[in-house]
Amino acid sequence: MCSVCGCSEGETTIEHSHEHQHDHGTDQNHTHDYGVGAAHAHAPGLSQARMVQIEQDILSKNNQYASANRDYFSQQGILTLNLVSSPGSGKTTLLTETIALLKEQLKLSVIEGDQQTTHDAERIRATGVKAIQINTGKGCHLDAHQVGHALENLKPASESILFIENVGNLVCPASFDLGEAHKVAILSITEGEDKPLKYPDMFYAADLMILNKMDLLPYVDFDVEQCIQYAKQVNPRIKIVQLSAKTGAGMESWVQWLKASRSVQLIDYTAL
């Protein structure tokens, strides 16, 4: 239980301490009172039954937290990326290799999401970069509230890049905005080229698709052109980078995209 907002985290655990503040927004609602009686009631005898119109987005609470996170990132000039993929696509390796390339030039930090263990956060911390682990317990995705808590402990530097490595899952994280600037979908070529069609919500929500493990192309039946066509069919705006985090081939395109996205994020910030 949080001390300030009284939220119950269920099975979620976040490393380190637990003090925070956040805004609880309000929504506009209105009631239609049909008076005392069975008006609009579906069962006879329920004299107190009445209808209430709510018109509220199911994800409104998550979206309020996401919006608060986004404001914070904007005020601090932080570029935040939500990395999503199936388990085993190489997200953590991509991160450690990206950190190795960039940590002398840019301030970086990482939020790691997994159901259990702090293995990934430990891998990141071994590179010398700040990282915090969120364990979602049985949860299949991170939500904006958990990320808000993690931010209070992680305290990412202003003008930095924050990577959020979501739980390995191509379905659920698509619906939950964390306040990020972009979702980045990572697809390894040991998976099928039709993943963008099988999990269209995720590839629709992403602004960049990274095709990882390209060094394995000679050994697998993966049709790169077909995969790109499927991704563009689901999301005509999506950008695509092909790379191998292991060999380093193609990493320069990813780094170029990161730097360009950071420059865009900083336009607002420097204008303040």
Binding site: A49, M51, Q53, Q56, D57, I58
Partner: peptide
């Protein structure tokens, strides 16, 4: 694309 609560029957 919506996921909304429209209306409730309440007592």
């Amino acid at each position: 694309e919506q996921m909304r609560i429209k209306e409730l029957e309440v007592e």
